[in-house]
């Protein structure tokens, strides 16, 4: 492969294999903005992916897949909202339970379908496959080197960026978005001016979870929907999404950047050999970087960001009421 080809492949990998992270992060930002810390991202993504893929394949349409991924994951969100908002359960425990339950359900359904011999394999003659194949954006995709890398992805990747921008706009400029942020900062005040806290929390936790589910579907499609009994498609990205929320300072536009930065580390893990061989002078050192270090890097960086932002006491966008349940009569 020539130098340009290596770079293109690398950049392509950065985008294609990591945009699932953006969905998870955007969904979690929406959730946390409502004052709820949902640690169930990993499970929610897995459930969404499983539901979306199986039903998407049986309807043979990627759009059905997206819809069902959203619905399945939103149901996880509904469980979380019901337990934490209505039933006042502890958010940390509920979130972790969503993850345990979600992964359990993922393996249960996956193994059951696989054992029955009805697992849908992706094949080029399927409508689902066609829908999930890369769409080139005219003109832009013909730019040398970066065109192929940035503008020739499947519809889910483009949707990730659009979702992130939409959520950013929603939170910053619309009335419900502003109200939501008020709930995340100070629910009692929001309640006092007549915002229906319960309704807002339910809706946003569910939409946030639904968005995570689409991310799971993207990761499943990136792996051609092949199910193994030991690994999840989401592969820990749900946890990285929680980290990325902090790194992105609860801003979905930064989340796009953050996804690319974190994605770089992951793409480096797979492509460091090729990069080092192609550019031995500049990137030769890549070979001596342990891949496990690259995997840990998002977490190391986030831990450092957490510590530094708390030491400098810099005002972050972390919602003040995050993780606390709102019980009206405690006012």
């Amino acid at each position: 492969m020539n130098a340009a080809g290596v770079i293109t492949a690398f950049l392509f990998a950065v985008i294609q294999y990591n945009m699932g992270l953006l969905y998870g992060t955007v969904g979690e930002i929406l959730t946390e903005r409502s004052g709820s810390l949902n640690l169930g991202v990993e499970g929610t993504m897995a459930v969404g992916a499983m539901g979306g893929y199986l039903l998407g394949c049986s309807f043979d349409s990627i759009y059905a897949g997206i819809l069902f991924a959203f619905i399945f994951a939103a149901v996880c969100g509904l469980i979380f909202a019901f337990l934490t908002v209505t039933m006042q359960a502890n958010q940390n425990v509920t979130g972790l339970t969503i993850t345990t339950f979600g992964l359990g359900l993922y393996f249960f359904i996956g193994n059951a379908v696989k054992a029955s011999g009805k697992w849908p394999e992706m094949s080029p003659d399927m409508g689902f496959w066609k829908g999930a194949s890369p769409k080139r954006i005219p003109l832009l995709s013909r730019i040398p080197v970066i065109g192929e890398a940035l503008f020739s992805h499947n519809i889910l990747v483009y949707m990730a960026i659009i979702t992130a921008v939409l959520v950013w706009w929603y939170l910053k400029y619309t009335k419900p978005g502003l109200r939501l942020r008020a709930i995340g900062e100070n629910p009692a005040s929001a309640d006092a001016v007549g915002v229906n806290i319960t309704f807002y929390k339910y809706v946003h936790i569910m939409i946030g979870s639904g968005i995570m589910g689409i991310g799971g579907l993207l990761m499943c499609v990136s792996l051609s929907g092949s199910f193994e009994g030991s690994n999840t498609w989401t592969n820990g990205f749900g946890w990285i999404a929680i980290a990325l929320v902090i790194f992105a300072n609860w801003n979905t536009l930064y989340a796009i950047l953050g996804t690319i930065v974190f994605g770089l580390f992951y793409a480096l893990k797979a492509n460091s050999g090729a990069l080092a061989d192609t550019f031995p002078g500049v990137l030769g050192w890549l070979k001596s970087v342990p891949p496990q270090f690259l995997s840990a890097l998002p977490f190391i960086i986030t831990a450092i960001v957490l510590v530094i932002s708390s030491i400098t006491n810099k005002k972050t966008n972390q919602p003040a009421a995050m993780g606390l349940n709102y019980y009206r009569e405690d006012r």
Binding site: T97, F101, L103, G104, L105, F107, F108, K114, G229
Partner: peptide, 12 residues
Amino acid sequence: NIDSHFADLIQG
């Protein structure tokens, strides 16, 4: 057709 993750499901 049921792997050990069934425990996670029940636990959840």
